[in-house]
Amino acid sequence: MTKAILSSYIKKNTFIHKLNPLTKLIFLVAVIITVFAVKSFIYNLIIVLAIIPLAYSAKLLSKVFKPLRYLFIIFIVLYGIQSFLYPEKETILIDFGYGIAIWEEGVLFATIISLRLLAMIVHGYFFVLVTHPGDLVCSLRKIKFPYKFGYIVLSTLQVIPRVASQMETIIDAQKSRGLETKGSIANRLKAYSPLLGPLFLGSVQNVVERTIALESRAFSYETEKTSYRETYVRKKDKIIMASIVVFFTLYGVISWIL
């Protein structure tokens, strides 16, 4: 049986972990808005680097840069295209002759974009690492997010690993009937296409059964729903939320003035 993963949440007992999910969410939203609002990329670089003390205090410094592995290719493509082809060409950085050159504006543009991406991904991943999805949904419901939306978030996180294990079962079943899953890429792609039918149909069947399970748990019963899990917005959360808003507003303004 595959292990049920609950997103990537890592349980630790730190100040950041104990904050209300909404506080962390506001921080993430503020970061995303700011990286698009500030004028020069140095301000974005500061925001990206801010993850280091944050992750250190949450004891997650070694984990937080994990998604960068997948970003590497995107950065190469981004720099490759932008430094040669950025439309507002003025300053040549390196000239290869024959009209081919790396332009300074292009490099700058690629840097801005990649810093924005980097900030969003690193901070977004950090948010997922320090926030229990159950707590997040609970606190979102408290500010009147739809109940069904919360269920969708939580169940998806838990059901996706189930689909993966279903896929494994189907692959095993097909292999035992002589399906070839090794060899060239074309071979492998060919091998996986017959799995989609049973996987899809199986999932639909599961949806019907899970609907019945939900109905027998009174999911559609009309009343004020209560919650077993409890999250609190404490005084420190309110103070931090307010300071986040003030700080990032100032940060954005300063980037425009200086």
């Binding site: 159950g134 269920y151 939580l154 748990r217 009343t223 077993y228």
Partner: peptide
Amino acid sequence: TQLTGAGTNVEEELAFGLENLGVPR
């Protein structure tokens, strides 16, 4: 499929039906 996936652990799975009925925490 008889588990709803609404709870992240056994406790919460048990509590889910009661939450839906609006039973106090």
